[in-house]
Amino acid sequence: MMMRLAVTLAIAAGPVWAQGNGLEEGRDLFLYFCAECHGKDAASQGPMAEMMALQPPDLTHLAARNNGAFPIEAVAKQIDGRQPVAAHGDMPMFGPSLDEDQFVTLALPSGQPMMVSRSLGSLITYLQSVQNPPEGTD
């Protein structure tokens, strides 16, 4: 039954949302919700970072720290609060702020679709766009 529901939802969602969509919206959301801690450039040097017990992570190396693959599902779960951020439990959970009636389907590295709110999809798309290559590659 659960599998049938998942397949139905994936079909109802339509084609996978082009992850190039929403880049500007994602940047605006990042600057509004995230830049105070993670910095305007997502490299963890925001004005609040120096006051925090633990430095916020550099979000420009998420893919590099995950063997070159951007961890879409983990990022979505941390932003919307489904997966607590153990390194700094004081990270605000933005899931309620990003809830809306419009949903998009993102493609996970496995090719499997993942439905998220349009705002969360835009924020993830922006974070993907700021990834730096792993050290030692050009």
Rank of each mutant, 00 (worst) to 15 (best):
I79R: 12
D28C: 11
S122A: 15
L106R: 07
K40S: 13
N21Y: 05
Q83G: 03
G22M: 03
V116E: 04
C34N: 03
C37K: 06
P109C: 06
P71E: 06
D101N: 14
I79K: 01
D80Y: 12
Q83F: 12
G26N: 11
E73K: 12
V85G: 04
L98Y: 04
G89E: 14
L29C: 06
P57C: 08
G121K: 02
A87H: 04
V116A: 01
L23D: 01
T105G: 04
H88R: 12
G22L: 01
A43P: 03
N66T: 06
Q128T: 00
A49R: 10
P84N: 03
D41Y: 10
Y126K: 08
D80G: 04
G39A: 10
K40M: 12
L62I: 06
L59W: 03
A76D: 01
E36K: 14
Q78C: 08
S122R: 04
G22H: 01
A107R: 07
N66H: 12
M51K: 15
G81S: 00
I79M: 06
A18Y: 01
M52I: 13
M91H: 10
V85D: 13
M48G: 07
V116D: 00
L108S: 03
L62F: 09
L54K: 11
V116Y: 01
G14D: 02
E24M: 08
G81Q: 02
P84T: 08
H61Q: 15
L23Y: 04
A64D: 00
G39W: 00
A74W: 08
A43C: 09
P92H: 13
S119K: 15
E100C: 09
Q112C: 08
S122F: 02
L106C: 02
D99K: 14
G14N: 07
A53G: 10
A42C: 11
G39H: 05
A49Y: 00
E100N: 12
G14M: 10
I72H: 00
S97M: 13
A49Q: 08
G22E: 04
D58V: 01
G22Q: 05
D80A: 07
G111V: 01
G81T: 06
L54R: 12
R65E: 15
L59H: 05
L54V: 15
E100K: 07
V85H: 14
A86H: 10
G26S: 09
A53M: 13
L108C: 04
R118H: 03
V130P: 05
Q131H: 05
A18M: 06
S129M: 05
A18N: 14
P92M: 08
G111R: 05
Q83T: 13
T125Q: 11
F33S: 11
L127N: 01
Y126E: 00
Q102N: 13
G95W: 06
D28I: 14
H88Q: 10
P71N: 00
